[in-house]
Design a protein around this nucleic acid. Structure first.
Lengths: 206, 206
DNA sequence: GTCTATATTCCGATAGAC
DNA sequence: GTCTATCGGAATATAGAC
């Protein structure tokens, strides 16, 4: 029986290391995470970590690869059998929200990379670049066909990227600003609805 | 004659340290920056840094305080003699864009704090919180008066926060996605116009 | 596969000469 | 005010026993 969650709960030490490393790297960044931190979470000693991975950098790379692969899989599923116009956008938004909700570490890690170029910035950037181009292409096609109102497609996409990702990546700050948990199911529902409405106002010609 | 820029170009070593530290902390984070890095940029040795500041943490705190003070000053100026409805929003947006354009390090530093809680997360959060409440109050008042279309004000504000800040904080990634410099005057003009239009579609009842 | 012990390097911070 | 020299500690990584 396969495990749906990216984490493992028993047996495979390698998976336990990746799971602990993901949480640590997302929370404290690459420089702010030591092999001792990861080893403590797993419940083993530092050198035992390096029996499974050749270096700290290799662990980080493996964590990143797993996340980007998961994201790529989701995107492929989301753009299969595409709808036209606004319906497709709502579909992709819903898929993205669900993914981010279940992978908040992904968002924070990618954001850390985006800000400054972590150790493997180029890898992430070149992976995301074709997905971005594909989305821009879709938007421009639908605008030209009159199924979406005309806008600067790349800029609109970047605005959406920022609005959605920030809500997850900056959850600690937003918790203070709102005075309540922004990641509760109720709060996420409200945020989702508001973002959809914001872009529907700009894009939906109906 | 006073110096308008936050940086110094000669003489005052303390200011040179702050200037170098700001750039290093914004680019590589607190953990990713060593006193040697800063000292190298200034052109002195590591212990000389600690003649001007008692510790690395004190330098970070000083950098942060200067940025938050600058931001507070801008906000105070921007909300003086407020306009009504959409005009005021456009005014504040223009002021914010100009500030971020001239203080890209501010954006990246605040974002690092927002993601995980840097060393002084609480300070930043409690400083920004009343500004957030003030903005929410304005939006809700204007919506009630019919000068703005009704929305979930906090959520809309968070969406705007994310859309605008991400463009600056994630400039390294966006450079790859767009294939051109997102911080060029021309690109900033386009981005500014698109963000204004996005929110005008949602808010302006005219 | 996990451990103890250790090599090496870098860190922040201090002491004291000039 | 800046320097060299050094302390104490933590980091990654390796060697080798079990």
């Amino acid at each position: 029986m396969a495990q749906a969650s990216p984490s493992a709960s028993a047996g495979d030490t390698k998976a336990l290391i990746l799971d602990a490393a993901l949480r640590r790297f997302a929370e404290h960044g690459y420089d702010g995470t030591s092999l001792n931190d990861i080893a403590d979470d797993v419940g083993i000693r530092r050198p035992s970590i390096l029996h499974h991975f050749p270096s700290k950098e290799a662990i980080y790379r493996a964590v990143l690869k797993q996340l980007v692969d998961d994201w790529g899989t989701l995107v492929i599923k989301a753009v299969r059998d595409p709808e036209k116009g606004w319906d497709q956008i709502e579909r992709v938004l819903a898929a993205a929200f669900e993914f981010f909700e279940n992978n908040t570490e992904f968002v924070r890690l990618v954001r850390r990379e985006a800000i400054a170029g972590g150790p493997f910035f180029d890898e992430i950037a070149t992976t995301l670049q074709p997905l971005f181009d594909q989305a821009v292409g879709f938007l421009e096609r639908e605008m030209k066909a009159g199924r979406l109102r005309k806008h600067n497609a790349p800029q609109l996409l970047l605005a959406g990227y920022g609005a959605i990702l920030s809500y997850f990546s900056d959850a600690p700050l937003i918790t203070v600003l709102l005075g309540s948990d922004p990641l509760s199911p109720e709060a996420l529902r409200v945020h989702h609805r508001e973002v959809v409405e914001l872009f529907r106002n700009a894009l939906d010609p109906r």
